[in-house]
């Protein structure tokens, strides 16, 4: 369902990614690993059409993303759910409103919002906190809200940028169990991560990028030492918000 064919993206001569070809099938669970600045961010941004590729084709559900007209971009993005490392919840909206927001902005009927949002909150296990504000709940719960928001519109792909990066290990694992559950419902999951423990324990497909090149693609892959960045740039986020 996602296929990169010889995709290259450079920034003023610096390599973002170069000649990357990869195919991800529907329903897969994929870890995207690699040091900071290796091109993970470029990889994902190209898929979301947040930037244009210099060369190559990116197929998504049968169409070429690189040839999308700007009028079709919103529809394209609606088929993807995104979880940010910093959760990116709106502080002035309640948990319920934050999730409903994702439906409101694609103009779903209120009826559908009232039906689906509670279902999602229930799925991620935070129904009890529906009317609290993000500041009133724990970090783990905030990430669950972000997850509920990402899947409330039934995307075919869930892109998670370091969803466990800001969480303690135990809470991180709860989120991973949720991601697995979502994946079992048929949603393709693409997770960017630096967590060796999670990658090794989950034993899922691992795609490694270094210096803009795809260096490893393994079924049931493991985390390699060279996938690590220095401490300092680990906090760098995929999406600037």
């Amino acid at each position: 369902m996602i296929e990169y064919k010889n995709v290259t993206k450079k920034y003023n001569g610096n390599i973002g990614i170069e000649d990357v070809s990869v195919r991800i099938e529907k329903g897969e669970f994929v870890f995207l690993v690699g040091p900071s600045g290796a091109g993970k961010s470029t990889f994902v941004k190209l898929l979301l059409k947040l930037m244009d590729a210099d060369a190559g084709e990116i197929f998504f559900n049968g169409y070429d993303v690189t040839k999308l007209q700007s009028i079709d971009i919103p529809r394209h993005r609606r088929s993807m759910g995104i979880v940010f490392q910093d959760f990116s919840l709106l502080p002035k909206k309640t948990v319920f409103e934050n999730v409903a927001f994702a439906m409101e902005i694609i103009q779903m009927p209120r009826k559908a919002v009232k039906r689906q949002v509670p279902q999602m909150l229930d799925l991620v296990g935070i129904s009890a906190e529906a009317h609290k504000y993000p500041a009133q709940i724990s970090i783990g719960e905030q990430q669950r809200v972000a997850l509920a928001r990402a899947i409330v519109n039934n995307p075919s792909v869930l892109i998670a940028d370091e969803p466990t990066g800001n969480l303690d290990p135990e809470t991180g694992w709860e989120i991973m169990r949720l991601l697995e559950q979502i994946n079992r419902r048929g949603t393709t999951v693409l997770m960017v991560t630096h967590s060796k423990e999670i990658v090794n324990a989950m034993s899922k497909r691992v795609i490694a990028i270094r210096d803009g090149h795809l260096v490893r693609d393994e079924r049931s892959g493991m985390y390699h030492p060279e996938d690590d960045s220095t401490e300092a740039d680990q906090n760098e986020e995929l999406f600037e918000i």
Binding site: L48, I73, P74, R75, H76, R77, R78, M80, I82, S88, L90, F101, A102, I105, I106, Q107, R149, N153, F239, I241
Partner: peptide, 18 residues
Amino acid sequence: REKEITIMKYVGATNWFI
């Protein structure tokens, strides 16, 4: 509200909607 706008864009809101 930059954050909100970014989220709207990522979730697939149209420019006129934003």
